[in-house]
Amino acid sequence: MKNWWKFLGIGLLLLASIAALRIPLAPALVHVSPDRIAPGTTDITITGYNTAFTSGALVKLVNEEQQVCATSVSVLDASHLTARFEVPAGMKANLTDVSVDDLIYTGALFTEGLGAGITSAVCPETYPAPASFTFPNRSILYESIRNLHFHVPMWFTMIVLMGISVFQSIKVLGNNSLDNDLAAEMAARIGLVFCVLGLITGALWARATWGAFWTNDVKLNGAAVTGLIYVAYLVLRGSVQDAHKRARLAAIYNIFAFMLLVLFLFVVPRLNAIDSLHPGNGGNSGFNDLDMDNSLRSIFYPAVLGWILVGCWMYDLRVRAARLANNLDR
């Protein structure tokens, strides 16, 4: 059973992709209307996402830990309700949070008629909803958080394939084998396929999240430089005729470039720590606990492993086809 890893790759990819598309987002409050309150009787319509509002919903305003309970709540459907408040004058902060049961929309309402603070009402206690397996619901990302399991594995696969390419290049320097050189070239080519896929999917996701297809971000620069380096690698290969000379020149460039690339991806971002839009604190390639919770993680790692195995399979096919072509030419 020497092909077990191919089955493993496809299996992981299948399970992770189904999970990535099917697991619901956590419920959240996404919109309130109107978005400002003044002292007096006010009706506020609250829109939720993936929520299950029931007629017993407990709605309150929270301003600097001082609460205002809703006097009446009318639930329109599972994700819309209207609550009436007697808004007192003299609240402290100019942003008021809205809370429905255990969901909180922070800073939802601009507040007028500020003052030294109000006497907090004691609203009925709300109990946290039973925990369920959901993806976190982040503003501006919403459902597109699922892309984590499709877009990011492209980069992991690319780096692994480039690593294989460099490994084969190191072997070329040791033994001058043309077969290792072939493997190095094919790994770089498959890596470039994943680079292109990562760039295009990233551009689409960036357009929907940050409003532009390309932003000046350390990760995007890293991706662009990786692409340029390996295109240059292929150009170098194309411009040398003699096979042994080509193998050695390409191997030297590959090792040199990969080491500098590693520096660029993992050291330089730490210097320019402030200006990354990506999660993981300024180009830190890892994800810390704040950025990725366990539900995302438990799907993300199988997806990454699945894509890496599929990438290796593509590389395997490409090398075998190229070897066959070489044997036929001979």
């Binding site: 459902e143 896929l197 689409l204 929907a208």
Partner: peptide
């Protein structure tokens, strides 16, 4: 298209691009 329906179409687009690429 991108911003509607909780941005699910972004995921559709990304998956479509990957399948097309492969």
């Amino acid at each position: 298209t991108l911003y509607g329906s909780g941005k699910i179409n972004v995921v559709v687009g990304v998956v479509a691009i990957i399948i097309l690429g492969i």
